[in-house]
Amino acid sequence: MRMYEEGGVAGRGLWVVEPARRPRMPDPVRASAVRALLIVAVTLTEATITFFLAVTGSWLAVPMVFMGIAGTVVATWAVLDVLITRQMWNQRYGVVSEPSSAAAPRPRPR
């Protein structure tokens, strides 16, 4: 207990807010990334259930295989949507209108 009294941990708050390492993703990109993550998670869960149904020899394995194929197509589309949305955002809003160090110096006014 003496450690807390000598200014060790007791002086700090419950947590320390640190600045983010990278800037936050734009909202459309984050929305498509969350959507893709959920779709991929559902597809992987569906594939696991399909595997166990096939191992047990259940009649539900056949329709689940078709659902798994459709889920794989949708999950691939969702991941491509993230990449396309990110690229579109960078092309529309990613350009910074500042002269770089390689830019030619401005001519002096006469």
Rank of each mutant, 00 (worst) to 15 (best):
M1V: 10
M1I: 09
M1T: 10
R2T: 10
R2N: 08
Y4P: 02
E5R: 10
E5L: 14
E6L: 06
G7T: 10
G7H: 08
G8P: 00
G8K: 05
G8N: 08
V9D: 03
V9N: 07
A10H: 02
A10V: 04
A10C: 00
G11H: 09
R12V: 01
R12Y: 01
R12H: 04
R12K: 02
G13A: 03
G13H: 00
L14V: 03
W15L: 05
W15Q: 11
W15R: 12
V16S: 03
V17N: 11
V17W: 09
E18G: 03
P19M: 10
R21N: 10
P26C: 06
P26L: 11
D27G: 05
P28I: 12
A31E: 05
A31V: 02
A31Q: 05
S32D: 07
A33V: 07
V34D: 15
R35N: 08
A36C: 03
A36K: 00
L38V: 11
I39L: 11
V40W: 02
V40R: 07
V40Q: 05
V42N: 00
V42F: 02
T43G: 08
L44Q: 09
E46F: 02
A47L: 07
I49R: 13
I49P: 02
F51S: 06
F51A: 09
F51Y: 13
F51V: 09
F52W: 13
F52V: 06
L53C: 11
A54F: 04
V55T: 08
T56R: 14
T56C: 08
G57E: 04
S58I: 01
W59P: 02
A61N: 04
P63L: 02
P63N: 03
V65S: 03
F66H: 01
F66Q: 01
G68L: 00
I69A: 13
A70V: 11
A70R: 09
G71S: 01
G71V: 00
G71P: 00
G71N: 00
T72V: 14
V73T: 07
A75V: 05
A75N: 06
T76I: 10
T76G: 14
W77A: 11
A78Q: 10
A78V: 08
V79P: 00
L80A: 12
D81V: 04
D81F: 01
D81L: 05
D81E: 10
D81H: 06
V82T: 02
L83T: 08
L83A: 14
L83R: 14
R86A: 15
R86W: 05
Q87G: 09
Q87F: 09
W89V: 11
W89L: 04
Q91H: 11
Q91C: 06
R92C: 05
Y93H: 13
Y93F: 15
G94V: 01
G94T: 02
V95N: 07
V96N: 07
E98I: 13
S101M: 11
A102H: 07
A102E: 13
A103P: 03
A103M: 11
A103E: 10
P105R: 15
P107T: 14
P107S: 13
P109W: 14
R110F: 13
